[in-house]
Amino acid sequence: MTWLPENLDLVLRLTGTHLMQSVVPVVLGLLISVPLARLAAGSRLIRPLMVNGAALLYTIPSLTLFVLLPVVLGTRITSIINVIVALTIYVIAILVRSCTDAFAAVDRSVLQAATAVGYTKWQRFWAVELPLAVPVMLAGVRTALVANISMVSVGAVIGIQSLGTLFTDGLRRSIAEEILVGVVLTVILAVGLDQLLRLLGLYLTRWQRPGRLTADSSHDDARRTSSSGPQPSTAPDPDESARRIAATGGGA
């Protein structure tokens, strides 16, 4: 266990650039996706177009974009800008869909009530729609971030610096410890940032937590497995959406 102490500087520098390459695309992607999704959610015409377009973007392998983008952007092939742009595209592919679902799932009667008490459309968006869409939206953001952290390392194959550099360098020099440090740090980044977002989500959805008011009286008929009633609720619960998105997210 001597490699890490001797190369702490390198590891810190790579962790920093790895973080930048995974977090910046999420921020950029979110800024682009939210207006697109709001547009799509309100339109029967644009919605399938946008959701299908996003799905198509998603099928493009990340390495393809890493190699193709320098041609389009005029960057060097080892530039981290290629990664940031490529991953922003993936984030949009994931978020346009989950944000569209999020806006579509907002209770219509709440929106009508907001209009009825005198919110303008713009005020209503910021004060009502956006906060109510957060839970479903956040599930998408978490998926995108974890996927990014894993995908950034792939760039190392063509020489883009990141924690992935520890993998290629470790293999070339046959230092298992170097690779292991890279794997562990990648997992720590992924889990750590994911938990941070989870906490942020809890803060943003304080209104959703069950309070003491809703003491649930259990009765015998509620025990039946069939007690869920004739129609399943149409509002997706956030964990459920997280599962769904998790089942369709992440690419390398």
């Binding site: 952290i149 390392s153 792939v154 190392a156 194959v157 992935g164 993998f167 890279g182 990648t186 997992v187």
Partner: peptide, 9 residues
């Protein structure tokens, strides 16, 4: 947890 593991690593 598996999802967080980098495939290249």
């Amino acid at each position: 947890a598996l999802r967080a593991l980098p495939t290249l690593g």
